[in-house]
């Protein structure tokens, strides 16, 4: 039987071998071509992030200088002095100055346990809603100023999820999440529903949850835009 068709068999076998090696090697070449692009993108993201951090710092510094300049000018007249005082008060309320004082620090982190099923994987992670509830409970407990991982919360701040990350003031947070609240009452916070839930969840799912009181909690200034662009007082 083999004598009947050696040529076609050899030919097709050769074709098969040729195709096999060609597709395998080109698939590998394409994979290799993708790799540097990914690294480039990662580097670009890192560069932009550090540029943003530098700008944030510059904004804080310039605001500080402006505040100092205003204080210097205000010495000239009583009216200016009143205005400067009023502005300083407004800056405190708006969150554009760093504050320090007695307060509560709540630290939250993802569980290091592996979820039993993909359906309840979310229960083993800190979600944006968890942070929102904790912040709301802290504000209800009398917090004057709140920051998450040194990102100051102001009236226009959104705490939201972007994929697997939590974004505050348009910057992604790196876990663990440290919520610092000046002026919050620890007992009032711990009697809130979310604090009771977290106490339960830390046992059930292994979520990191610690509450501590400190006599010197520092909350940095908000570096973003506080100017209201479209709304007008009436």
């Amino acid at each position: 039987m083999p004598a009947r068709s050696p040529l076609s068999l050899v030919g097709l076998a050769a074709l098969l071998g040729f195709l096999l090696v060609t597709t395998a090697s080109s698939a590998k070449a394409h994979r290799l071509a993708e790799a540097p692009r990914q690294a480039e993108l990662i580097e670009l993201i890192g560069d932009r992030r550090s540029a943003v951090a530098d700008l944030d710092e510059a904004v804080a510094q310039l605001r500080d200088e402006v505040a100092k300049g205003k204080v210097a000018i205000s010495r000239s007249s009583a009216a200016d002095e009143r205005e400067a005082e009023e502005q300083a008060q407004l800056a405190k309320l708006a969150g554009t100055v760093a504050l320090t004082g007695r307060g509560v620090v709540v630290q939250l982190s993802h569980s290091d346990r592996t979820p039993t099923s993909s359906a309840d994987a979310g229960a083993y992670r800190i979600n944006d809603a968890d942070l929102q509830l904790v912040v709301n409970a802290l504000l209800a407990a009398g917090a004057d100023a709140v920051a998450i991982n040194d990102s100051r919360l102001v009236s226009t701040t959104a705490i939201r999820a972007a994929g697997a990350h939590i974004v505050v003031n348009f910057r992604p947070l790196v876990p663990p999440f440290r919520v610092a609240a000046i002026g919050a009452d620890r007992r009032a916070f711990e009697s809130s529903a979310i604090a009771a839930d977290f106490k339960r969840w830390s046992g059930m799912f292994g979520l990191g949850y610690t509450v501590s009181t400190s006599s010197e909690v520092t909350v940095p200034a908000y570096a973003g835009r506080v100017t209201i662009a479209n709304a007008e007082p009436r």
């Binding site: 050899v10 076998a13 050769a14 071998g17 096999l20 090696v21």
Partner: peptide, 8 residues
């Protein structure tokens, strides 16, 4: 034949 094709 397979080997020949692969080598080519």
């Amino acid at each position: 034949g397979l080997v020949v094709g692969a080598v080519v």
